[in-house]
Design a protein around this nucleic acid. Structure first.
Lengths: 203, 203
DNA sequence: GCCGTTCCCTAACAAGTGTTTGGTAGGTTA
DNA sequence: TAACCTACCAAACACTTGTTAGGGAACGGC
């Protein structure tokens, strides 16, 4: 009887994820260009050349990190957008989902935050630009719908509001630490309370 | 009679500023580490080695860009903080001043945003960490004072609010374009309106 | 005219970069 | 036992990087 026994050596796909996780951590901390493959290999306990058994290039590591993050992000976003919620509830759900993604993919988000802008010009990373377009359509569309339906103020520039909201959500990745004082849901709640109702005391 | 005539060749201090401006532009667009000194020289219409007539090193360019920006920033901030305004008015003045700085030093702000975190660990850039400490004291202190004086809500985590406000103000440098649709003051006004009163329509 | 200064070029250097090639220890399969 | 595969090492490669040294053209002061 041949039981499928787990071998001593870590199997391939899991090892890939491990290496990508450490690579993402270093990329996030030092920046992609400032990170050498020797540094990644060091952190992973092996030599630089050995990384090329698992990956084609340094760039393909970055590619895999960013694309798997975006895939998971849009899985969550699409679910929210398909739920047919009202504008305010949609914004709330998107914000909450975003902080959950930061919780799960903090290094990837930090990398995205720093590098996406100039990476998007390269053909290989064209999907970053696509994602950004989809992103704007979802958020800006919801805000505009909220204005026409009378749940959001109409005396603010929607485009400015969109940028503020978007940026504030994602830069959280630069200071957020998993296992800290606040859960992603708590952070989302406070953030939504601030953006929706303001920090000034109502008189 | 010896009149101090302006020579045909651009004098030294102005040329320095020109070169630093183009360097800052490239640093902001591509990231410091991803920027080669040859690229900067190219953009300035000269060869790589020629830059070293004006500057000691690539790092000293970055240093000068960031330190002159911070000097000017704190000149404005200190003026605001010394004015003895109330918490709400202080926040308003700080935000407005910040957007004015972004208007004047957009590339420097963008570089600061991307690189400050891992630069602050180097001894040469220790003033970045100092500035960050002063920064937190000013903003967080004002927010806390506003809570105790009853002008800001007390049911929000002040530290979270501080981070949100701080980040949102400065990431504006990544999309702001001087000479665009909105003046710095107008952006500050809209941003303050959102943060203070919220985007939800009051019922 | 000559001198000194300013500003840039030409040409190279040493260090560090991502990547490749050949080899090999150890486990699995037949 | 033999063949094979996985996962890594050792050593090098070609190239790019920041930086330097020497030289020279243009210009102002004397």
């Amino acid at each position: 009887m041949s039981t499928k026994k787990k071998p001593q050596v870590t199997p391939t796909p899991e090892r890939r994820r491990e290496l990508l996780a450490t690579a993402a951590e270093v990329f996030a901390a030092q920046g992609y260009n400032a990170t050498t493959v020797r540094r990644i290999a060091d952190e992973a306990g092996m030599l630089a050349g050995s990384l090329y058994y698992h990956f084609d290039s340094k760039e393909s590591m970055l590619d895999e990190i960013l694309s798997t993050f975006l895939d998971e992000l849009w899985q969550g976003y699409d679910e929210v957008l398909a739920a047919g919620l009202g504008p305010r509830e949609t914004i709330e759900a998107l914000v909450t989902e975003s902080f959950r993604e930061i919780d799960r993919h903090r290094p990837a988000v930090a990398i995205y935050q720093k590098e996406a802008k100039h990476l998007a010009t390269q053909p290989r990373f064209a999907y970053l630009a696509d994602s950004q377009t989809k992103f704007e359509k979802a958020w800006l569309g919801t805000l505009e719908r909220g204005v026409t339906e009378g749940v959001f103020r109409d005396d603010l520039d929607v485009r400015l509001t969109y940028r503020f909201v978007r940026d504030t959500v994602w830069v959280a990745a630069s200071w957020y630490r998993p296992g800290g004082h606040h859960s992603p849901e708590e952070i989302a709640r406070q953030y939504l309370s601030m953006v929706l109702d303001g920090i000034a005391l109502r008189t």
